[in-house]
Design a protein around this nucleic acid. Structure first.
Lengths: 130, 130
DNA sequence: CTGAATCCTTGGTGATACTG
DNA sequence: CAGTATCACCAAGGATTCAG
């Protein structure tokens, strides 16, 4: 086994790593997938109903919004509440865990913002020699 | 426009948000895509040659490894060095920016590790009522 | 050894229409 | 209002083969 300065990586390797069934990856897929991140950010503005979210995300389809919300709810990041008012409404909100997750996401977003200039420079340099 | 406690979100919204062309998303795609994250983590163990990486990632295809490396190199996260030794070899390593990015990724991974038990509980509860 | 090129399959995504 | 059902599409990914 390769030497490493990071015990964490080593641990994964030892316990056998299956990319398909990796629980960590299942969480990262919330970042990977097209919409869940944006849904979380939209919910960061406070609890909202389905159609409010739908209007808030410019190009999402109802299908994908519903699916994203279910996925996030399934993992306990979003809470779904049905109010049998008149007319009936469903509101979505971030759970504490969802807020915690969103905070980490925003950390990545901040990184992207900070380093975007450097990345653009790198791309230019890369394109130049090609 | 919706009230918010987060000026950041508001800013994106104001400047018009196109999910397809969002620069932040392009960075997040390095997390989203199946392999780049694992490649970065593998490179976190130190510089390595193509085949070493290939052997290090259990189920990756050469095609995707090459593509992931190019994408990462393009954005200045990975450095590619050709040694005209005998036999010729190519070594890959993290740039400082790549290390910085990897650190953020590991933050997310740590979150996933910490909260996995809670997520599993949430999934069970979700499955139960369905 | 380090890839590039090709083919082919599959799953994610959007559009549309329909239901409680 | 809040979704679900169905279809069609396309691009990401795997396998294989070829090249420098």
């Amino acid at each position: 086994m390769r030497n490493t300065t990071d015990g964490r990586l080593e641990a994964w390797r030892i316990q056998g790593f299956d990319p398909a069934n990796c629980p960590v990856r299942q969480v990262l897929d919330h970042v990977s997938a097209k919409w869940p991140t944006l849904v979380l950010m939209e919910l960061g503005n406070g609890p909202q109903r389905f159609n409010a979210l739908f209007r808030g995300l410019p190009d999402i389809s109802k299908r994908m919004l519903a699916q994203s919300l279910r996925d996030l709810e399934r993992d306990g990041l979003v809470r779904r509440e049905v109010h049998d008012t008149k007319p009936p409404g469903v509101s979505y909100s971030l759970t504490p865990m969802g807020q915690s997750f969103l905070a980490r996401i925003l950390t990545l977003v901040d990184w992207a913002d900070e380093h975007m200039p450097a990345i653009l420079v790198a791309r230019e340099a890369f394109g130049a020699e090609a």
